[in-house]
Amino acid sequence: MDLAEALADLDTHAWADVAHAYGPAEDLPELLRAFAEGGEDGAEALGELYSALLHQGTVYSASVAAVPFLVRITAAGCEVVDSLVLLGGMAESDDEWELPGGAVRSAVVAQLPLLLPLLADDDEGVRGAAASLFGRVGRACEALHALGADALDARQRLRVSELVEGDRRFVRHGMGDEPVREDEQLRELLSRL
């Protein structure tokens, strides 16, 4: 996926109909574009995205709306680690302003197939951030299956601990869909390592 494809429909989204920490989210197209393009403006945009979409740990309707764009920006190879960390923070938040419970997390989980290739990326930082995201949303088993637990090399085995810790943190916070089943699946996969 290239950046043009990642940002398709960005300007036609009804941003005025969703809100972030400071009101209507009409500024998000400019912020997302600047972030994706990187550089000094991208770093500033990242700070503004955190402030607007994950303000003091709170997420908003604009956070949900921004998820597909952030995931596609990530899949296009732009600002990958920063995107993954922001997505993880938003997905993990249980402080949801005027949202149904788990709305941001569900939006992130729906986009995970686009992020699966990052678990085997050549860059260790990308692999770690992707593993952390999968763990933070309680999808460590999915990530381990995608990696092929039987074929993990030593480098990938180091990421397993991040996945497991992320899932444990997720279950401790009471956000796991089926924590007992997930825990059993993890034990079975890990026993093969």
Rank of each mutant, 00 (worst) to 15 (best):
A4Q: 11
E5A: 14
A8P: 07
L10D: 02
A14Q: 10
A19Y: 14
G23S: 06
G23V: 08
G23L: 07
A25M: 04
L28H: 02
P29I: 06
A34K: 07
E37K: 09
D41M: 12
E44K: 15
A45L: 04
E48C: 08
E48P: 06
Y50G: 09
L53C: 04
L53Q: 01
L53G: 00
L53R: 00
S63A: 10
V64K: 00
V64Q: 01
L70T: 01
V71C: 05
I73E: 01
T74R: 03
G77K: 07
C78P: 03
V81S: 03
L84Q: 03
L86M: 07
G88A: 05
G89K: 02
M90H: 02
D94P: 07
D95T: 13
E98H: 11
P100C: 11
A103S: 10
S106N: 14
V108L: 02
L116A: 09
L119T: 00
D121W: 03
E124C: 13
E124D: 15
E124K: 13
V126H: 02
L133I: 08
A146R: 08
D150L: 10
Q156D: 09
L158A: 12
L158K: 14
V160P: 02
S161L: 11
V164E: 04
E165M: 13
G166P: 01
R168H: 14
V171C: 12
V171N: 11
V171L: 12
E178K: 11
E178V: 10
E182C: 12
R187I: 14
E188N: 15
L189C: 10
L190G: 08
L193C: 09
